[in-house]
């Protein structure tokens, strides 16, 4: 429940339409999967839409079986994770918009491709602006090309340009993969706060990926809401 109240604090109503966008490789798909499971656990009827037209591997489709087992609807682009270079935006996506209007309990999460991949949102611009979506910018201060506040801001503005939408909040997903320490996250907090200040947007969450624990004493100095997440990325070895 905490996740709904937290998102609602920045959003006029119950979160019904979330757009997860941001820099290439910032961790958008993993955030989208975590939010899908959390909102589902909080009682929402969740649909996750894979809108990534950029990435060939490591897609939400890797989690298709566990999403289905959990009872989360998943709209997979036809041919995702096959040998087709660019997954198409399936007709299935259209059916979620009337669903959102009819069903009070429905929540839809768009998992968008990085950087210019956000251009795919343009296809649904009319519906997204009419229904009102909360667009979240996922950034990782350890990613190349978005290591400084200024570079992150430039990336955010580019994505706004590609999508023709404005971001509502930032998710600080700063991490170095499995090796991430609390200090790694804390070290980059000033840069992330500076970015938020430049963008004039709130940091909705700072993520802490298991096995790292949000209760880690080192985090007590941080003035940011922490969100405990799991890594759903497919392991190949």
């Amino acid at each position: 429940m905490i996740i709904i109240s937290h998102i609602s604090a920045y959003f006029p109503s119950t979160p019904k339409l979330l757009i997860i966008a941001g820099h290439y490789g910032a961790g958008k798909t993993n955030i989208a999967l975590n939010l899908a499971y959390m909102l589902h656990d909080a009682g929402r009827d969740v649909t996750l839409i894979d809108l990534d037209i950029v990435n060939p591997y490591f897609r939400a489709a890797d989690s298709e079986a566990s999403l289905a087992a959990a009872g989360i609807h998943y709209i997979n682009p036809p041919f995702a994770n096959t040998n087709v270079d660019i997954p198409v935006l399936g007709a299935d996506i259209q059916r979620v918009f009337p669903l959102l209007e009819q069903q009070e309990n429905a929540t839809v999460i768009f998992d968008v491709g990085g950087d210019n991949g956000a251009v795919a949102l343009g296809r649904y611009h009319a519906q997204l602006t009419r229904l009102g979506a909360m667009m979240l910018c996922v950034e990782n201060a350890y990613r190349p090309l978005t290591e400084t506040p200024e570079a992150m801001l430039e990336n955010l503005r580019e994505i706004e340009g590609y999508s023709r939408l404005r971001f509502d909040a930032i998710i600080n997903n700063t991490n170095l993969g499995e090796a991430t320490t609390a200090e790694d996250i804390i070290d980059k907090m000033p840069a992330m706060q500076q970015f938020a200040s430049l963008a004039a947007l709130p940091i909705l969450f700072t993520t802490v990926c298991a096995p790292l624990d949000t209760k880690n004493q080192a985090f007590s100095t941080l003035d940011t809401p922490l969100l405990s997440i799991r890594n759903h990325t497919r392991k190949i070895f």
């Binding site: 350890y142 990613r143 991490n175 993969g177």
Partner: peptide, 13 residues
Amino acid sequence: HKVLMKGNEAIAE
């Protein structure tokens, strides 16, 4: 100076 990179990006940098 640590960064989290894709292999392709690491070659390029």
